[in-house]
């Protein structure tokens, strides 16, 4: 073995590293954007861009959490149901029980955190696969949301509350984007600048080795699942405000959109690898795809087909690039 320093892959500066890691999907993003722009010139207007960003923001709350969960070697399928449950909780506590806005929101977030705590604890205590545990909690939460409301929406009229989802800060920036900024910085900080972040990668990279290294695996599990529950609940609160109502099915399928964004962004389903930067670009890609198809007036069922196909292609390209390296 002789070592050639030059040909080796060295650590680069952050921008170059980001481009290298996400190069494929960034190129895909620009190609798609160009195609949409050519077909529907209203795509690149500030009004439309802001509307796209607002639409993807709630997906990105959940996707940020899923990024950490996948890196830690888990999965969370309860997200969409928690979003629905939270929408129901925040609405009934305000409308039926007369709770002030901040308190009602707090209750909804606490319910989300509780579900996350249950997910984490059950996975740790029983050793059941996260897929099964979180799938069961999905069913339970969705069921409760329906039972509680009799599957009927709850109308919301409090303008102060509605502002939190539908309003604009300084008259231009949609409120959901403000929260998103905070969340993204927080997740980036945790993953890149803290001990906990390293531990998340370690647990996903090799759980046994992590245990031998003194990593508190239970704490890592709790953190990622509780954070996920809170993010899903926040999405529920914001969506209720944006739609002037508590909706018992508002989050349905939310987990799939979030997982798709994360995986598109290069985070490995197998754990140990991934980044929040990748997730952002993944969510953007799904966002403009939906928007482009909408602008082109394509039927929403066809949109589902298109979305599935594009995700499959993008992930496969990434897989060939990164993973399938057994034979060199």
């Amino acid at each position: 073995m002789s070592i050639k320093e030059k040909g080796a892959v060295k650590a680069d500066n952050p921008v170059v590293a980001y481009m290298k890691r996400n190069g494929g999907i960034i190129i895909g993003f620009f190609i798609l954007a160009t195609i949409i722009q050519i077909n529907t010139p209203q795509f690149l207007t500030s009004k439309n861009i802001i509307s796209v960003l607002r639409q993807i923001s709630t997906n990105l709350y959940c996707a940020s959490a899923i990024t950490m969960i996948l890196i830690a070697g888990g999965i969370d399928l309860s997200i969409g149901a928690v979003t629905s449950l939270s929408s129901v909780v925040v609405s009934t506590f305000m409308v039926n029980y007369g709770f002030p806005i901040p308190l009602a929101i707090l209750v909804a977030l606490a319910v989300g955190a509780m579900v996350g705590f249950l997910n984490g604890t059950i996975i740790y205590k029983t050793g059941l696969p996260p897929f099964i545990v979180t799938y069961s909690l999905q069913s339970i939460c969705q069921g409760i949301a329906y039972v509680w409301t009799g599957a009927q929406p709850i109308r919301l009229t409090d303008q102060n509350f509605i502002f939190l989802g539908a309003g604009y800060a300084f008259g231009v920036i949609p409120m959901p984007l403000i929260y998103l900024g905070v969340i993204l910085v927080f997740v980036w900080y945790i993953l890149n600048r803290t001990k906990l972040g390293r531990h998340i990668y370690a647990v996903g990279g090799n759980e046994k080795a992590a245990e031998f290294s003194g990593v508190n695996i239970r704490k890592v599990r709790w953190f990622v699942y509780i954070f996920s529950g809170i993010m899903a609940a926040l999405a529920g609160v914001v969506l209720s405000a944006r739609m002037y109502s508590g909706q018992p099915a508002v989050g349905a399928g939310g987990e799939m959109d979030a997982i798709a964004a994360v995986v598109l962004g290069g985070t490995s389903m197998g754990g140990g690898r991934g980044s929040i930067g990748g997730t952002i670009i993944g969510a953007l890609l799904i966002g403009i795809l939906n928007n482009g198809l909408n602008l082109a007036g394509i039927d929403s069922y066809w949109q589902m087909v298109a979305k599935g196909a594009i995700i499959l292609i993008a992930v496969y390209v990434d897989f060939v690039k990164q993973g399938n390296k057994l034979r060199k």
Partner: peptide, 18 residues
């Protein structure tokens, strides 16, 4: 292999995780 290393991580990550 099972209990000692994080194979998908760098030498740096492995040496400093503790």
């Amino acid at each position: 292999r099972e209990e000692g290393i994080f194979p998908a991580m760098s030498i740096k990550f492995n040496e400093t995780i503790k």
